[in-house]
Simulated assay, not measured.
Amino acid sequence: MRPIDRSEILPIGDYEQIRARFRARVIEEKRPRRVKLGEQMSAVFENRDSVLLQIQEMLRTERITNESGIAHEIGTYNELIPAPGELSLTMFVEIPDAVIRDRMLIELRGLEGCVSVEVDGVRAAATSDPKSVMPDRTTAVHYFKIKLSEAAIAAIRGKTAKVAVRVDHPRYIARTELGPASITKLAEDLA
């Protein structure tokens, strides 16, 4: 997947005019990309549209209009775009109560090393930037890349694969199999 280019970013005023339609389209596109992982986590497989939406929304929310700020946001979010042969996954720890969430983020330390995607029974570890790992806790949002084997890529592209997202942490175990619509989206990402 090719990275987002500066020429694709709309000025805030122009973005406001198309925002409702663009957001609705991308949110619908993300629906089969979203995976519920138990009661307190979910994940989304990222693609170019989801990343473009995040960039535009960040520029809008933070009112960023200077070129260096725009370039920073593009560079930051382009890290979410998967390289050839890999998937990109954003995972969320979703605990509304701040006190419980803070306690759980401490209990879930090391979560970054406990996430994988399973393709036909073979696990591919999800990896994240080592600089984002904290020794005494985890964070509520994680950005992962999953490098797939040629066999896994072929099976997903052929839409014959059984694919699951796994969390195997001592304090949280979850495994969710993807349905056909989700596998179709992954096949598009790997095309």
Rank of each mutant, 00 (worst) to 15 (best):
M91E: 09
T61E: 14
E112W: 10
R60L: 15
S50N: 00
T138G: 06
H142N: 06
G113A: 09
E112K: 08
A98C: 02
M91H: 03
S50K: 00
P180L: 11
R137P: 07
Q56G: 04
G110K: 05
T138A: 03
L108G: 03
L178P: 03
S88H: 04
G85Y: 00
L59T: 07
E62Q: 15
N47A: 02
T127W: 09
N47M: 01
D97R: 06
T176P: 08
G75Q: 10
M91R: 05
I55G: 02
T61G: 09
R101G: 02
R175N: 09
S128I: 15
P96I: 02
T90S: 13
T139Y: 01
F92T: 00
E94P: 01
R48S: 10
P170K: 07
A83W: 02
E94K: 15
M58K: 14
E67G: 12
D168E: 14
T90N: 11
P135I: 04
P84G: 00
V119Q: 09
I95A: 02
A181E: 15
G113W: 04
P135T: 08
K162N: 02
R60Q: 13
L148I: 06
P96H: 01
V141N: 10
G75I: 02
V119P: 05
K147G: 06
P170R: 13
T61Q: 14
D168N: 12
H142F: 11
M58N: 12
A125M: 14
K147R: 15
I55P: 05
T176I: 01
V119T: 11
A126H: 10
S132I: 09
Q56D: 02
E73Y: 11
A124C: 14
F144I: 07
F92C: 00
H169I: 03
I153G: 01
V117N: 08
L52E: 03
L80D: 14
A164I: 08
A98D: 12
P130I: 05
D120Q: 04
I106L: 06
D129A: 13
V93L: 08
L87P: 06
T76A: 12
V163T: 05
